[in-house]
Nucleic acid binder design. Structure first.
Lengths: 191, 191
DNA sequence: CCTACCGATCGGTAGG
DNA sequence: CCTACCGATCGGTAGG
């Protein structure tokens, strides 16, 4: 039993690493099996298919994002603070799972139906939570009268690329980074 | 002669479309050939290999970005204006070639050596041009004393995702968009 | 530009 | 968890 669970986890971790490095389509089940240390057919004792593996990685991450958002937003009253905390929470989820995050962002299109549709629905729902905060913040004057869709786009584009920052030589401190990115997005770079 | 050239262009355009939609690794030469309207082996009259095709798409785009940057920056004196114009020029290159741009951003890792190394070198060089403007703008007081690497990261993350905006139902006007994104990055959303 | 074809590899199954 | 194996498809070449 313990062995089974642990091998399954190893399969998932190896898949995250390989899918991230070279892409879902470019990784074969034989290569994945080799990384785990078993034969290819044995992988099917843990996952029904290659797609099944991808699905677990992607939906796991989706749930992490939703949970982190819920916890972050509830603590604040001002919309600008809600947005700031939601930004930090989002970055933290990525920082804690950089490999899975990269798969989530770059390989989701290989999901098969009906999961592809469900995935897109969840992403839109999550995006709308952010837009909602922005719009309420505009209404009560905390934010400028910006295009909320475009503002959400700028925020997500930035946040969803943060996994890149963990592989760089010029190391950036995590705590500082959260705050700096939030400040850049909220206040820009101009004096 | 005309036929030869036109078929080659058609191969490139079809490749851009298919690589963008489903990824370089997931597209076979037979599927590409079918989209062009020829047999798979005939593709090799135009490109030496699948990788050769990807290389042309990626390096074409690289040159477009460099050229656009040079033209934009030279027109301005203030660093904040240089940055703003460079941002707009970058967005315009993507807007004019959304399919090739998406391949450029998402499929470059399938380039083979030595081209992969050359590609990375060019990207870093381009990124440094932006950082340079930011740092000079900080020195002369046009910008806040931000982390220039992080500021460049926020800018590029946003710009390099703009191809997403052209497939959305909620249509955003191109001219307005350039300016709005530049403003959001320069001044943020906070009142 | 085509037909015919190569060896290699693909995701997955049968059966134990 | 394994060995043995399936039909399908891969990028690419030979030769015309």
């Amino acid at each position: 039993m313990e062995t089974t669970i642990s091998t399954k986890q190893k399969v998932k971790q190896s898949a995250q690493k390989l899918f991230r490095e070279r892409g879902y389509a470019a990784i074969g089940m034989r290569e994945l099996a080799k990384a785990v240390g078993i034969q290819a057919p044995s992988l099917y004792n843990h996952y029904k298919s290659k797609d099944d593996l991808l699905r677990e990685i992607c939906f796991d991450m989706a749930h992490r994002f939703f949970n982190a958002f819920g916890g972050a937003v509830i603590k604040e009253k001002l919309f600008s603070n809600k947005l700031k905390e939601a930004i930090k929470a989002h970055i933290d989820v990525i920082a804690s799972n950089p490999e899975a995050a990269e798969v989530f962002f770059n390989e989701w299109m290989f999901l098969e139906q009906p999961y592809l549709l469900e995935f897109k629905k969840m992403r839109l729902e999550y995006e709308m939570k952010f837009r909602n905060i922005i719009e309420k913040g505009i209404t009560n004057g905390e934010f400028k009268n910006v295009n909320s869709k475009l503002a959400a786009f700028v925020i997500f584009s930035t946040l969803n690329a943060t996994y890149e920052l963990y592989s760089t030589k010029e190391k950036i401190l995590q705590e500082q980074m959260d705050e700096d990115i939030a400040q850049l997005l909220l206040k820009g770079i101009k004096s």
